[in-house]
């Protein structure tokens, strides 16, 4: 099957990151729950402050994306927010985000839900809307304040962050979209029922039938349908629930460490769920040069992957400094002890 391609040339006009200030070291989780003896998957994760949620983080990432795009919010014809931690079960995050950006009222807005793929699914929707000619400007956001059950292994990595992308016409783009592939199947690797606070993971479904099956299939399909090889790309960014999975999947696709390391942030900020692969993409766009290609594959449990091929234009170096670099959000950090983390994230019932 051929890759999906827009009906007219389109790309990313602006991108924006947001990572909260607080960090919880994995060694602190191990100290509290495992006697300090557990083998920890990452160094630390980013933790939202007590006044933050997916909406507030989405707004800051989106404002950064608009600043780089050089446009006002009123130009947006769609605002789509992907998250598994929307603050309301019923009431869209996207209308609050749109209002805060000055978008609408004549606009599309909706919340997207697909575990860690919700943000890239929103990006695919924006690509479809603009690529079909139905609109000239659409915003896609991935934002999460992911929660792991205390003592569960997910607690080491479930982090907070947001990334936003303004999709528009090619002549104003900092990166052009060359084509994409989406790949989904019913896989019980990770789920959370409606009234439950914490998710469950489906044990043996996590690795091979979940992450690797979807990331590798979507990635290989896109490479073959575009007639490309990994050597054509300067960077590869994959969903990063831990450092091992993306490194192994990238290697299996034929990429080298110098192609994936610049976009691999999980060791310093954790798995930011719907923002995870998208934040990796912002970090790569912070350094990519005109003409360089970026290969991107997300993954969301349940399960599915979106693979996109991008090529950077000469506009990127001129616009990247219009908003804070992803690295500057990573550098801004305040360590928390476990007790303060538990207080901030509502894990203590009063």
């Amino acid at each position: 099957m051929p890759a999906m391609r827009p009906s007219r040339p389109i790309g990313i006009l602006g991108y924006g990151a947001y990572i909260p200030r607080y960090r919880l070291q994995a060694s602190e989780v191990a100290r509290v729950w495992h006697g300090g003896q557990d083998h920890v998957p990452i160094a630390q994760k980013a933790v939202a402050g007590p006044d933050e949620d997916a909406i507030t983080m989405a707004v800051e990432a989106a404002r950064n994306a608009l600043a780089r795009a050089g446009i006002a919010g009123e130009r947006l014809q769609a605002v789509w927010v992907g998250s598994e931690s929307h603050p309301y079960a019923v009431k869209p995050s996207s209308t609050i985000v749109a209002e805060a950006l000055g978008a609408g009222p004549l606009a599309l807005a909706a919340d997207v839900e697909f575990a860690c793929k919700a943000g890239s699914e929103a990006l695919q929707m924006a690509v479809a809307l603009v690529g079909s000619g139905m609109a000239d400007c659409a915003l896609a956001i991935g934002a999460d304040t992911a929660q792991g059950r205390p003592a569960d292994e997910l607690e080491y990595t479930a982090g907070s962050g947001a990334a936003a992308f303004v999709v528009g016409l090619a002549d104003e783009a900092v990166a052009l979209l060359e084509g994409s592939v989406s790949y989904v199947s019913d896989t019980p690797d990770f789920f959370r029922r409606g009234q439950e606070h914490y998710p469950r993971h489906g044990g043996r479904f996590t690795g091979e039938p979940g992450y690797f099956a979807h990331v590798l299939a979507a990635g290989r399909e896109l490479l073959s349908s575009l007639g490309r090889s990994p050597a054509d790309y300067a960077y590869v960014v994959l969903h990063q629930p831990n450092p091992k999975f993306p490194a192994r999947a990238a290697a299996e696709l034929g990429f080298r460490p110098e192609q994936w390391q610049p976009g691999l942030l999980v060791d310093r900020i954790g798995n930011t769920y719907a923002a995870s692969s998208l934040l990796g993409l912002t970090a790569v766009l912070d350094r990519a040069e005109p003409g360089e290609r970026v290969f991107f594959v997300s993954f969301g449990s349940g399960a599915g992957s979106d693979a996109l091929s991008l090529v950077v234009t000469e506009k990127l170096p001129l616009r990247r400094h219009q908003a804070p670099a992803t690295a500057s959000y990573i550098a801004r950090q305040q360590l928390l002890d476990y007790a303060t983390y538990a207080r901030f994230r509502g894990k203590i019932a009063l």
């Binding site: 909406i55 805060a100 804070p324 670099a325 959000y329 801004r332």
Partner: peptide, 12 residues
Amino acid sequence: IYGYKFRPRLES
């Protein structure tokens, strides 16, 4: 209820 707050300025 959401609204404005201020934080130490983050240099871009």
